[in-house]
Write a protein that binds this DNA or RNA. Sequence first.
DNA 1: TAGTGTAGAGAACGATCGTTCTCTTGGGAA
DNA 2: TTCCCAAGAGAACGATCGTTCTCTACACTA
Lengths: 211, 211
Amino acid sequence: MADHDDVRTRTDDVRTRILDAAEKLFYERGIQAVGMDELRTAAGVSLKRLYGTFPAKHDLVEAYLRRRDEHWRASLAAYVDAHSGTPGAAPLAVFDWLETWFAAPDFRGCAFINAYGELGATSEGVGRVTREHKLALRTYLADLVRPLAATASDEAAGPGGVTTVLAGQLALLIDGAITAAAVTGDPAAARTARAAAEALVRGVGGGRTGV
Amino acid sequence: MADHDDVRTRTDDVRTRILDAAEKLFYERGIQAVGMDELRTAAGVSLKRLYGTFPAKHDLVEAYLRRRDEHWRASLAAYVDAHSGTPGAAPLAVFDWLETWFAAPDFRGCAFINAYGELGATSEGVGRVTREHKLALRTYLADLVRPLAATASDEAAGPGGVTTVLAGQLALLIDGAITAAAVTGDPAAARTARAAAEALVRGVGGGRTGV
DNA sequence: TAGTGTAGAGAACGATCGTTCTCTTGGGAA
DNA sequence: TTCCCAAGAGAACGATCGTTCTCTACACTA
C-alpha cells in the first residue's frame, strides 16, 4: 500500500512538473517555439520519463490545454462566487476578474485562441479542446444570466431564449476583450467590455425583453 | 521607357504572385507550417527571385499581413458604403459583411490574431502590424458611429466620448465574433454580435446617453 | 556478494527548416 | 558567331526539431 502511494505520488509529481513547465513555456512563447529538450530541462525530468508520460508532443499539448481549461474556469468561478452579492452582479464580476488577469505580468492572451491560430489547421485535437473550452464558458455564462431572465418560462426556451442569446453575446465580449488586451497590452479592454455587458444585461432586466 | 515599364510590371507581378501564394498558404495552414520551398513552388518563382524580393521569411510575413490589412479593410468599407442607407445602418452593415466572410469556405479566423498567437511572442513585426490593424479598424468604426452621437459637441470629446467608447465596444464584438466563428465554424456568431451591436447603438441614439 | 532491472544523461538519427551556392541555360551586344 | 551576364533549377549546408537508442550507475533481491 505504501509502495503504491509512493509510486502514485511520484508519478503524479512528474506529470505535474511536466505540465507546469509546459504551461509556462507554451503560453509564454508559443507551442512550436518550445522544443521537447528545453521542456525536459525546465521540468527537471529525463527525456525517457517525458516520453513515458506523454508519448508524443501533441499529447502533451492537449493535456496542457485541458488542464489550463480546468484551472482557468475554476479561477473564474471562484472569483465570481466571491464577488456577486446580487444575481445582477454576477455576470459583471466576470469582467472584473478579466481585468485582474489582463494586468498580470505574464498575460499573453487566450491560450486556446493562440494554440488554435498556431495549430488549429493541423491538429484536430487542438481544435476540439478549444471548442470545448469556449462551449463550457458559454454554458457557465448561461447559468449566470439565467436568474436575470424576466420570465421564468424563458428558462427552458432553448437556443432562442434570452439567457442563451445573452450568454452568447457576453462570450463575444469576453473573447474580444481578451484579444484586444493581448494585442494592445492595455487591461482597460476589460472595462470597455464590462460597460457593454452592463448595457446588454440592463436591456434584458428592463421591460424590453423582445429579441 | 518601355524597358522600365517591362521591368517594373515584371517585378510587381513577381511580388504579387509571391504575396498571393503566401496569403493563401499562410492563412490556410499557419505561417510556421509553410516552408519557403513550398511557397516558391506555389508562386512559380525561383528561390533566388524569392529571396531577392523578400530577404527573409519574416519580411514576407510582414508584407503579407500589411497587404491583407489593406484588402480586408477596403473590402469592408466597400460593403458598408453600399449597404448603409441611413447613418444608423452603417455600423450594423459591418456585421452583415462579417457574416458573408464567415460563410466563405476558406474562412479560418482573423489572420492577425492567428499570426499573433503563433509569432507574437517572438516577432516584434507581427505584433506591430497586428496592433496597427486593430487600431485602424477602431478608427474606422469611430468614423461610422460619430454621426450617431446625440450631441455634436461629443465629436471632439476624445477618449471618453461616446463615439470612442462605442467604437471600442463594437471592436470587441467584432473580434469576439471572428474568433467564435473560427472556432465553432458557425457564421451565426455574426448575427449574435449584430444583435448586441444593435442594443449598444440604440443606447446611444436614444435619450440615455450617459456613460 | 552477485545479479537484475530500472531510470537518468545525453548521443544519435532522420526529417525538415531557412538560407546560400553551384551549375546550367538562354538571350542580347559587339 | 562569340562573349557575357542574368536568371532558373535545385543541390547543399548548418541548425534544429521530435523521437529513439545506448551506455552507465545505482538500488534492491536472493
